[in-house]
Amino acid sequence: MIAQQIAFGILAATMVLASLRLVTTKNVVHAGLLLAVVLGGAAGIFVLLAAEYVAVVQILVYIGAVVVILLFGTMLTRARIGEDTDLDNDQRWLAAIVALFMLGVTGTVLWQGFRHAGGDGKVHLNGVQRAAQVSDLIFGPYGIPFEVASVLLLAALVGAVAIARRD
């Protein structure tokens, strides 16, 4: 248990620091790489919670596809590779206040509400959920949402082509 606690600490610290850098860095390409770090950290968190299938999907889809799309986008929009001072707008203080306010509200509520959740407030991984159970759920009771998700992907595909095509 203590090893998991240490792993969580390291992952959480890495993710928070990387995401803080991500929203403040002056270099778009660095931001993309930092996003990969945060997403990889999330995959590690999933492994800690015994959700290895989602962790694998996270790495495949997010780091493999989403980050690559974003980096391609960076290239296609000819952002300056390197330092760029002009990445933030003039409402940084407003944004910081709103974000801190949200963090305060949600953090307090979560702390008070879930500190003692289920008695000791701990996650017990006794009934570990295998990938087989996930698939039973997806192709069973959640079949219709699954089909709807496929339609959504198709719609997004067509929509993206329609929006970005030159004509």
């Binding site: 248990m1 803080l20 929203v23 986008g73 910081a96 949200m102 953090g107 979560l110 407030g121 701990k122």
Partner: peptide, 28 residues
């Protein structure tokens, strides 16, 4: 492993994301 640790981590990431959405000028 406490549940609330994960929830707080998520809250922190979410708030950082909110800051980024509000403060960044670059669409990407």
């Amino acid at each position: 492993m406490y549940l609330v640790e994960y929830l707080l981590l998520a809250a922190a990431l979410f708030s950082i994301g909110v800051y980024g959405v509000l403060a960044r000028k670059n669409g990407v």
